[in-house]
């Protein structure tokens, strides 16, 4: 298999629905917590070390072949906001469709049967990485990067932020992204022996609260 498959999976244009989600950025922009590149960077940093770490570890664990049903349950327990659980399942279903078309694999078919309305996206992403011949660290990188790139792209649209500034934010986060992806992959390997409780559960109160506020708006640009 090829490492370059990671580029296909991590490409922002991979047709798995991510473009319609802001990763909480739309709520934070409206609340006045993201106003410029500096606050976007702090937002993304906080997201990376919380939701990003959790999803990267789930993806890595799924890529290692841990039971996706247990991982999906772990993802549910780590996502108190029902709006975020709904978004994660919707994105998981979309990722499943794209992955099955891209890297047909019996484990993807089996997962699609188990969760016809979608498993949590990082779990599907991990099984997709596995189908593409990628390893747990690759899946973790992809998920951790996604956790911040979507918010950065959305903020470019929401604030008409200079796209070069937004890309600069992602570049400055790269060393932390390395650390998060590797920590996630380590936790996933521990989970093989110790069970899914070994996976991180880092939370971000304002992401959860903001997601519920956002879901109640009558008019919004992004689905989450």
């Amino acid at each position: 298999m090829t490492r370059a498959a990671l580029l296909v999976l991590a490409d922002g244009r991979f047709p798995a629905g991510g473009h319609a989600h802001s990763g909480g950025a739309e709520a934070a922009v409206k609340a006045g917590r993201i106003t410029d590149a500096a606050s976007l960077e702090e937002f993304c940093r906080g997201r990376l070390h919380t939701a990003g770490l959790v999803s990267a570890a789930l993806a890595a664990a799924a890529a290692l072949g841990l039971d996706p049903v247990e991982l999906d349950e772990a993802a549910e327990a780590r996502t108190p906001s029902p709006a975020l659980r709904t978004a994660a399942r919707r994105l998981g279903r979309q990722m499943m469709r794209a992955a099955r078309a891209t890297w047909p694999h019996p484990e993807l078919d089996a997962l699609a049967r188990l969760f016809p309305k979608g498993a949590h996206q990082p779990v599907v992403l991990g099984v997709a990485a596995r189908a593409a011949g990628l390893g747990p660290a690759d899946a973790a990188y992809c998920s951790a990067y996604e956790s911040v790139s979507g918010a950065a792209t959305a903020t470019v649209r929401l604030l008409s932020l200079d796209p070069f500034d937004a890309t600069g934010v992602l570049a400055r986060l790269a060393p932390e992204l390395d650390r998060v992806a590797l920590a996630a992959a380590d936790a996933a390997r521990r989970a093989v022996d110790e069970g899914v409780d070994a996976l991180p559960a880092r939370s971000a109160p304002l992401l959860e609260i903001g997601a519920e506020a956002h879901a109640a708006w009558a008019v919004r640009l992004f689905a989450s």
Binding site: P15, A20, A98, L221
Partner: peptide
């Protein structure tokens, strides 16, 4: 997500 053409052409999953 502010891009209706993406949802009907580039990423039709939703």
């Amino acid at each position: 997500g502010a891009c209706p053409h993406t949802a009907i052409r580039d990423d039709i999953s939703a």
